[in-house]
C-alpha cells in the first residue's frame, strides 16, 4: 500500500466553512483515510445556492461555471461536493454548458474577461478559455459508490455502529429535477440506504425521505418550516429510527437546530438526533470524536454513537 494520496478537487461551499464545519471537517477526515488529498479550487466563491431557472437572467451561472472552469484550469476532471445545494447548482450549471448553446456562449463571453490577480506578484491574468462542461460533478455518496467502492469502505471500518437505526433523508436537492441531477432514481432511490448499510447501520425506511424540510422558508415563514421539519422527524420516530442521516446543511439547520422551535409549536414532539452522512462514516472509520463537531448539534447525537456524556465510548 503506497501512502501517496490521490489528488481530488473538492468544492466545500460557504456554509461548511462557518455554520457546519462538522460537515467539512468530517469530509476531510474520511477522504484522508480513503487515500485522497483534497484540493479546493483556488479563489472559490459561493456557488449561488440556487440554480437560475429563468431563460434570460443567467448571471447566477457565472459563479458556478467559473468554479468549474477553475477546476479544469488546475488540471482536474472531476469535483465533488457534500452539500446537496452546491451539488445541485454545480451539476445543473455544468449541464447547461453542454446542452444550452446560448447560455454557454453568453456566460463564456462574460467570464472570458474575468481578472485574477496573483497574490504574490500582483500580476493580472485575463482572457480565459471557454468552459464546455467537461468536468464531472459528483456528490460524495456517488463518488463512494462508483469510485471508492463499498468493499473498500467495509474493509476500513474500525468501529461497529452496532446496527444503529438510521433513516436516510434525501430531501429535495440530491435527486431532483429528474433526469438532470440523478445521483439515483428520484422516485425510488437506494444509494443512501446502500451507503448506510455498508457502514454498519440498520436502515429504516420512512415515507418522508424525499419530502421537503421547509428549506428557505425557515427565513421567510419560519412556522411553515417548523411544520415541514416536524413532519419529517415525527415520521422518522414513528418508524423506529434512532437518528436521521442527511447531506444538506440547510436540511440540518431545519431538522436539528430548529428543534427548539418545533417543540414550542408541537409540545408532544420528541427530540431526535440528526447526523451528516460523513459524520457517521467518520465515526465508523475510527475518526476522533472531536473532529465530528458534535457540540454544534442542538440534539446531542452522542448516545446513538455509543458515547456517554463525558465523551467516553461505551
Amino acid at each position: 500500500m503506497g501512502n501517496k494520496k490521490t489528488k481530488l478537487h473538492y468544492y466545500p461551499g460557504c456554509t461548511l466553512k462557518e455554520k457546519t464545519t462538522n460537515l467539512d471537517d468530517t469530509t476531510y477526515a474520511v477522504m484522508d483515510l480513503l487515500g485522497y488529498e483534497l484540493i479546493e479550487p483556488e479563489n472559490w466563491t459561493c456557488c449561488g445556492a440556487e440554480f437560475p431557472l429563468t431563460e434570460e437572467k443567467i448571471v447566477g451561472l457565472a459563479a458556478p461555471v467559473r468554479i468549474l472552469r477553475q477546476v479544469k484550469l488546475e488540471g482536474g476532471n472531476k469535483v465533488f461536493t457534500v452539500c446537496s445545494f452546491c451539488f445541485n447548482v454545480l451539476k445543473r450549471a455544468n449541464e447547461a454548458m453542454v446542452t444550452d448553446p446560448l447560455k454557454h456562449k453568453r456566460i463564456n463571453a462574460f467570464l472570458k474577461d474575468d481578472i485574477t490577480i496573483d497574490r504574490v506578484t500582483g500580476d493580472k491574468t485575463t482572457g480565459f478559455p471557454e468552459y464546455n462542461g467537461d468536468v464531472s460533478v459528483l456528490h460524495l455518496l456517488e463518488f463512494i459508490r462508483d469510485e471508492v467502492g463499498y468493499e473498500k469502505i467495509r474493509a476500513l471500518i474500525k468501529r461497529d455502529l452496532g446496527k444503529v437505526k438510521v433513516v436516510p433523508y434525501y430531501g429535495c436537492r440530491l435527486l431532483r429535477p429528474k433526469g438532470k441531477i440523478g445521483i439515483d432514481k428520484p422516485d425510488d432511490p437506494s444509494i443512501f440506504e446502500e451507503f448506510l448499510e455498508n457502514i454498519g447501520c440498520e436502515v429504516i425506511d420512512f415515507p418522508f425521505k424525499q419530502e421537503c424540510c421547509g428549506s428557505y422558508l425557515s427565513l421567510s415563514m419560519p412556522d411553515a418550516a417548523s411544520e415541514a421539519s416536524y413532519n419529517v422527524l415525527r415520521s422518522a420516530k414513528l418508524n423506529g429510527a434512532d437518528v436521521l442521516a442527511l447531506s444538506c446543511p440547510l436540511c440540518y439547520y431545519n431538522l436539528d437546530r430548529r428543534q427548539d422551535r418545533i417543540k414550542e409549536k408541537f409540545p408532544e414532539f420528541h427530540e431526535m438526533p440528526v447526523l451528516f452522512f460523513t459524520q457517521l462514516l467518520a465515526w465508523a472509520l475510527g475518526v476522533d470524536e472531536e473532529i465530528l463537531g458534535l457540540d454544534q448539534h442542538f440534539c446531542d447525537p452522542r448516545s446513538v454513537l455509543g458515547i456517554d456524556k463525558s465523551g467516553v465510548e461505551i
Partner: peptide, 8 residues
C-alpha cells in the same frame, strides 16, 4: 452573484 465585476 459572484459576477466578478468588482474585481474588474
Amino acid at each position: 452573484v459572484g459576477c466578478g465585476t468588482c474585481t474588474r
